[in-house]
């Protein structure tokens, strides 16, 4: 479904990604891990169109998407969350998720001005779907709160809801568990598994190993911009190179 083909990303003299190859299959949860500064978020930004890779291709459903604008990539069905929360703080929870429906709805300025039947029906359908997703994420009761006033964990959940509501073919989660407490992390683990069971494909960057090992079908490990290993959670846990990268040189 998503093929990362020899992608390199160089910032001035810093190589953030060096000739990385990976492939995400439909319906799986694919983990991207690595020590700090390994280039995980950079790779995410390349996939979602925030960066144009220095070299290499990103192929999504048979189409090259590298270097396209992030809004075009979103239109193709890739939705993402952010490591540093990027919500619309002064909009309500429901409004945030409604913006997430942007690619799924069509109403233009004239539909809005004349309040056409088509646009009203579309709007009602969008709201229904938003409530459904908020309920699924466990924040349905907060729909009228301002997004900026939510506790941290709920803001993370709202970001996932906003991405999920667009029915993405591929969902990118950038450190979804960052800043969450243990209970919240357990709930999140279940939620991610449920999202996969609904038929979504998920690509996740996460530092919390417990979560990663529990949810991922396959994992790719990056270190200093290079791909170090790829495999199932068991294979990764027993890979000497990975252990070395995480714990320092084994004697």
């Amino acid at each position: 479904m998503l093929k990362i083909d020899h992608v390199s990303m160089v910032f001035g003299g810093l190589t953030a990604n060096n000739d990385v190859c990976a492939e995400v299959h439909k319906g799986e949860i694919f983990g991207l891990i690595g020590p700090n500064g390994a280039g995980k978020t950079t790779l995410f930004n390349v996939i979602s169109g925030f960066y144009k890779p220095t070299a290499g291709k990103v192929i999504f459903n048979g189409e090259e998407i590298q270097g396209k604008l992030s809004n075009q990539i979103a239109q193709k069905g890739i939705a993402r969350t952010y490591q540093n929360i990027n919500l619309f703080k002064k909009m309500t929870v429901l409004e945030n998720v409604l913006v997430g429906c942007h690619t799924q709805t069509r109403a233009n300025i004239f539909d809005a001005i004349f309040n056409t039947k088509r646009s009203r029906a579309e709007h009602e359908e969008a709201i229904r779907r938003c409530r459904e997703v908020l309920e699924f994420m466990g924040i349905g009761h907060l729909e009228d709160s301002l997004a900026g006033s939510l506790p941290y964990g709920d803001q993370r959940r709202l970001e996932i809801a906003r991405a999920l509501v667009s029915n993405p073919k591929l969902l990118l989660l950038d450190e979804p568990a960052a800043g969450m407490n243990l209970t919240e992390k357990d709930i999140l683990t279940d939620t991610i598994l449920k999202i996969r069971d609904l038929g979504y494909t998920v690509l996740i960057v996460e530092h919390n190993m417990k979560l990663v090992m529990k949810v991922c079908d396959r994992i790719c490990v990056l270190n200093h911009g290079n791909k170090l290993a790829e495999g199932t959670p068991e294979e990764i846990q027993n890979n000497p190179d990975v252990i070395k990268a995480y714990l320092g040189g084994a004697k």
């Binding site: 992030s70 990027n86 913006v99 001005i113 646009s119």
Partner: peptide, 25 residues
């Protein structure tokens, strides 16, 4: 009518967070 429509939501989203707005298509 414009403000409470899909178009209005896009306007406000741009004001609030251009990066996130773009990321949502």
């Amino acid at each position: 009518r414009i403000i409470r429509s899909r178009v209005g939501n896009a306007f406000i989203a741009i004001r609030e967070n251009t990066v996130a707005a773009r990321g949502l298509g």
